[in-house]
């Protein structure tokens, strides 16, 4: 397939290869300390892990709200005299935990970003709560671009509803971004390039290096 004729989609095999490339690259480059690594989760049918199908997961991305425990340790340094044993509360009340999954969409032949956030205690965040966590530029992206809108859909492998960025248009702008690369790069670079775009919309801090050719 000549790059010029490429329609911006990728096959499941390309997706899997690209996913491996992304995991490796992510480990090599200097991402923010608190970001975990991407891991590959094979999807299970009847308890047997699939060889082919699976999804990428970046789980446990913490978002610390303004005025969180980072600065004020007042409550902790408060030496209270108590009769029994003493311990301090873990003050993770204002912490939100996000999980990001990248799965392959067979109908659009593009990767699909699923995400959800929950409070430290486990209760899921609503879309309004999530929007409050997003940096201003993400909100801009969401409100200005036509292709990025958040919907809530059933996670293809977990059968619970997750938030997702709608994949329509993905192939078009991917074609613009990668249309000039050689075929080999194309499949390996796909996810890194794609992620550096969609990551912005959901407040994921993607290092610039991820997109750059190494």
């Amino acid at each position: 397939m000549a790059p010029s004729l490429w329609d911006g989609t990728l096959s499941i095999d390309d997706f899997n290869a690209s996913a491996k490339a992304l995991m490796t690259k992510w480990r090599e480059i200097d991402v923010e300390d608190s970001l975990p690594d991407w891991t590959w989760k094979p999807c299970c049918t009847m308890g047997v892990a699939s060889q082919v199908e699976g999804f990428l997961a970046l789980e446990g991305v913490f978002h610390t709200g303004a005025g969180s425990q980072t600065e004020d340790n007042n409550n902790l340094s408060d030496e209270r005299t108590v009769e029994h044993d003493t311990w301090v509360q873990s003050s993770s009340d204002s912490v939100h935990v996000y999980d990001f999954h990248i799965a392959y969409s067979f109908s659009y032949k593009v990767p699909l970003l699923y995400f959800q956030g929950h409070q430290a205690g486990g209760q899921l965040l609503t879309i309004d709560e999530i929007k409050k966590d997003l940096p201003a530029h993400s909100l801009n992206v969401l409100s200005e671009s036509k292709w990025t809108f958040i919907t809530r859909e059933e996670h293809p492998h977990l059968s619970r509803p997750w938030f997702t960025l709608h994949p329509c248009g993905t192939s078009d702008w991917m074609k613009l971004l990668l249309g000039k690369s050689g075929e080999k790069d194309l499949c390996l670079q796909y996810l890194s390039t794609w992620l550096s775009v969609v990551g912005q919309a959901v407040g994921l801090k993607i290092p610039l290096k991820l997109h750059c050719n190494s």
Binding site: D85, T86, W87, V88, Q89, G122, L158, R160
Partner: peptide, 26 residues
């Protein structure tokens, strides 16, 4: 810095549980 110097009763940080919705559903 505070920890240096005089001995004091041991104080530890409690664990917070994160009970996922998926656990509830299961």
């Amino acid at each position: 810095a505070k920890a240096e110097g005089r001995p004091r009763p041991l104080k530890v940080e409690a664990i917070t549980s994160c009970v996922e919705v998926g656990f509830g559903d299961a």
